[in-house]
Write a protein that binds this DNA or RNA. Sequence first.
DNA 1: GCCGTTTTCGGCCCGACTGTTTTCAGTCG
Length: 579
Amino acid sequence: MENRDIARILSETADLMEVAGEDPFRIRSYRNAVQAIDSLNENIADILGNPERKLTEIPAIGKSIAAHIEELCREGKLKRHQELCAKYPPITLELLRLQGLGPKGVEVLLTHFRVQSLDDLERLCKEGKLRELPRMGEKLEQKLLKSIEAYRRITGRYLISVADELATETQQYLLRGPGVQKVTPAGSLRRGKDTIGDIDLLVTGGEPQKVVEYFLRFPKISEVIAKGENKVSVKLREGIQVDLRMLEPENFGAALQYFTGSKEHSVALRTRAKRMGLQLNEYGLFRVSANARVAGRTEKEVYGALGLAYIEPELRENCGEIDAAAEHRLPRLVRLVDIRGDLHMHSTATDGRCSIAEMAHAAKERGLEYIAITDHTKALAMANGLNEKRVLAQIKEIRKIESQMEGLRIFAGMEVDIHQDGTLDLDDDVLSQLDVVVGSVHSYMTISPEEMTDRLLRAFENPCLHIVAHPTGRLLLRREPFGFDLERVLEAAKRRHIAMEINAFPDRLDLCDQHARLCKEKGVKIVISTDSHHTTHLQNMKYGVLTARRAWLEKKDVLNTLPAAEFKKALQRSPAQVR
DNA sequence: GCCGTTTTCGGCCCGACTGTTTTCAGTCG
């Protein structure tokens, strides 16, 4: 059993314990253990297999949970979990995901109405039945109807990080298959979209039949959806669908183009081909009159034969890239290796799980030249946010750690809350002592778009602010972005010389690709940061870079591609920009 | 259920909003 499966079952157990009204502190222990497992760098199976190691070495895992994990790895299931699953219907876990419903509400709905599905709940809300229950009323019914709609919209999609990991695992398994030479992910995963519907994998080499046979023995497969000569579709245990296609090398380029999409991009390409007397399909590019094959082995060949420069997958959304490729004015997209700094991360001082020194060493190991430690400020009480006094102490600590390290610049920063009225959560004289001030909205996210616009504009008036973190507050598959007048805010950001963040945390990816592209058009600089709460999160930078590439961003558009000293200089705001 | 210790029990994050109440439970971040 893998870490992910163990974490999932423990997390479900915690959810169900909550519905059952068990001790909240016990439940929190389960959740802490889940977090610990999620951010673990090694396989639990390896620890169990090593007689010199103990699970209880892992912080947040004690005797009981260690026993649970051992039971899971031995039996493949957990008695405690199964008992709870028997007690509550399968819909319980989904109901808990709905905004506006917590464990108490779910428990009441289950016992009073015997809700078995989202449809059941939807009907009850529409018929106004919920208001029969204590502490439930019309507003809640309306809220839940909205939540159900939002939930339906997002189910069946996965965060790019989840799809990426599963695709990599599947790919590695396939590469060990008979005669397999190459396994290439295509589809929205290759285009770097923020959420992924299914995983497309293209395989070359080996006899298709034997490869299919081998693939169907992949232990993670839970269901075979379709099986043909050259194509297999399966569902993995995590629920995501994987489509496997076996290709001839001579078709590879055309097929890769076809299966990478997007659909809109491919349609535009085929239209262009047709106008040139050519036909493009997944098997190649053909001259219709001569019935002859023109290209197909590589994508470059296909694009070239269509009179186009090679178009990077991230740009293939039919948003101007084909014209740009024809006129040889495609951007030189920013790359992961261009990134020199990471300007948003947390430490144990607030809700991070590693010390400043641990974060710094991990960043240096990843080849970064500079970082900023940006813990939360006091308004975020749930994260133990820092007040002025603690901020000053942390600045001193950071200077000390930096002086003991070679080859890494550590900026003293803060992720300072932007209050409802647009003021910042720290005194200006403390803010002015920080190297990097990242401003964030974490509260009052449901105010009107007009109020949110005013709030951000007001925050920009603070001369200490440098960067706006996760500007729309969205949580992918969970929470919609809050609304504000983006154009107005970006114009102000340009005038005030304030940068916007692409938050690389896979749940956020905020700004999104389209918004980041608007920044470029408006001349607003971008900073790509990981918002790491653990050293393992530093690797999420690649998802932020993918989003930046989808936004057509080049190295010069992204401030943290600059060397440390130049970056610091680039943050500075002139008196005119502050006024 | 975990952790730290003032070392085997007691503390564990908590303020604010929302909607439903008529003094506050549930949810959220």
